[in-house]
Amino acid sequence: MEQAAEFDEFIRVRGAALYRYAFVLTGNADDAADLVQEALARLGDAWHRVKRKDDPEGYVRTCMVRLHISWWRRRRREHLAASVPDEGYTDAGVDRVDADTGLWRELAALPARQRAVLVLRYYEDLSDDEIAKVLGISTGTVRSQASRALEKLRIRRGRAALEAEAEKV
């Protein structure tokens, strides 16, 4: 019973932040709710094991980003959509913030993995190596996905970032 109480407390304390993360990942409230519930359900099933390693938050965040990509892949395939996002719905409030750049709206058109890479890099502030670990892909793939996504969004890389990348190659 102790464990269940701990888990519920985790949801109570971290629920809102995880939900915000899900919203940034999915781009809409309904998918965010679905994603956060599913990831928490999996965390609950693995609570004993994850708690021992002391990083439930990392576990659930990784789970969310991976689930998001796999759901998106499946839906994309099943809906056989030609080239458009399934849902362009955004909250009216976000639209206001986005009025200048239109970026939020355009993010919806990115494939889930590219969007996830951007969210991890620019929202979670993770390094490309850390992103690679979360997504289970190589650092090179992280970079190519990121630059492809930035190109689509017509975002100019800062000089510092480009130089840092050039050094690593």
Binding site: Y19, R20, Y21, F23, V24, G27, A29, A32, D91, G93, V94, V97, D98, T101, L103, W104, L107, L118, V119, Y122, Y123
Partner: peptide
């Protein structure tokens, strides 16, 4: 934009 969206998430 990502931070603003997170703030505005329901």
């Amino acid at each position: 934009v990502l931070r603003a969206a997170a703030e505005l998430a329901p």
